[in-house]
Design a protein around this nucleic acid. Structure first.
Lengths: 226, 226
DNA sequence: GTCTATAGATGGATAGAC
DNA sequence: GTCTATCCATCTATAGAC
């Protein structure tokens, strides 16, 4: 399963969960290892044994610190999505500041799209975190799916901003178009990029995040203003 | 796992795999049951025991007829996607016939979007089939992912048609926009619809397939022509 | 070709010593 | 809090009688 378990020393992806005690160091190592393995191999292909081996900690520590494998996944998912949505909210807030509380559609969409895109292009740790979120969304256990189905708090303000920006559109239309934009975002998986790469015979390069970002926002804005 | 194992009699979803012999009847029952359970509960939450119980056949028959659980999933996936892509190809072919071999962007996108959308809205069996495809795409085993990554034969003619329709656009741009449209399509899952329903406070009704179809094509066309 | 019984492997979780 | 050893449930896959 894992080909290159890192020895000791600083663990990739740890930067966002700085250990504050010896206890927290173990938790952080487990989280970093689990996030990486889940992101790369998928949830059902990673066992607790894989995680603890990769983290260089004891097999029992997952259950000791998190309660269960599912609870571990859930905790990582909540942390990462909270972090991501904070970035999005901040960008939206800034756009509102620039436009008297009524930013145009393009800036609202940029606030929604940019953070996940930048995560995908920044450090390896960030790319891992983003792929983890994307995979957890579709492969996660019941708890994750429950949150997905019912927690829309982070989307509410985006929907409201869009309604304010386009008061002429029926609200129903706004929601659907937001749904389409989210679909575009969630489709940014490794596998889909690979496929696109094959189809385009190497023409598409997802590593050029700035270009991809511009393309996505152009497309989404035009669709939204159809 | 399964709450209502159907008794004997015609099995839902069987219509597309008409049994041609007694032997094929068992295969068809297994396929129908597996497709339904996978679509509703997800791949990792359905065991071979669940499938054979639901199908009313012997536990061993999955391995006897298909070789393994993974191979069963793979066979259903191949059948269904082949069927779906035949419909898409036919629609594209017809559009080409109407426009001297160079249909406009809107009709090309319609040929891509309409079949999966109509599956989602037609019979319960078709809706199940569509959800199965969507779930298998993200939860499937290695064989499915391998096909996803490398098999682009069904997309090739759509990409070519789009290039022909928009010779002014860089080909790279065409491929990316096609990727965005595919993202919109793949996002039509039960869970996403549920979430949208919560967000819109019941305003969105995915059961109105005609309206959703028009919305999707409008959005995609505008995005493509940005 | 069906079915029962079970092999064989995996993996989540935990007890209990340190 | 860590670690080893191990329990135990679950599941896929198969052997072998019919």
């Amino acid at each position: 399963m894992t080909d290159a378990p890192p020895p000791s020393g600083p663990i990739e992806g740890l930067e966002d969960f700085p250990p504050e005690s010896d206890d927290a160091a173990t938790k952080a190592a487990v989280i970093a290892a689990a996030e990486r393995l889940f992101a790369i191999n998928g949830f059902r292909n990673v066992s607790v044994r894989d995680i603890t081996a990769e983290a260089g900690v004891n097999l029992a520590s997952v259950n000791y610190h998190f309660g269960s494998k599912d609870a571990l996944l859930f905790e990582i998912f909540r942390r990462r999505t909270a972090e991501l949505n904070r970035e999005r909210a901040r960008m939206l807030h800034e756009a509102e500041g620039r436009h008297d509380g009524r930013p145009p559609v393009r800036e609202i969409l940029a606030a929604l799209i940019e953070p996940p895109l930048r995560w995908s292009g920044r450090s390896p740790a960030r790319r891992i975190a983003m792929q983890f979120i994307i995979r957890a969304r579709s492969e996660g256990a019941e708890a994750v799916r429950e949150v997905l189905r019912t927690d829309v708090s982070h989307l509410r303000r985006f929907a409201d901003a869009l309604i304010l920006a386009r008061p002429d559109l029926p609200r129903e239309e706004i929601y659907w178009r937001l749904h389409f934009v989210l679909g575009m975002i969630h489709n940014n998986r490794f596998a889909e990029f690979d496929r696109l790469h094959v189809l385009s015979e190497g023409l598409t390069r997802e590593s050029d995040v700035e270009a991809l970002l511009r393309r996505m926002i152009d497309f989404a804005e035009a669709g939204f203003n159809a």
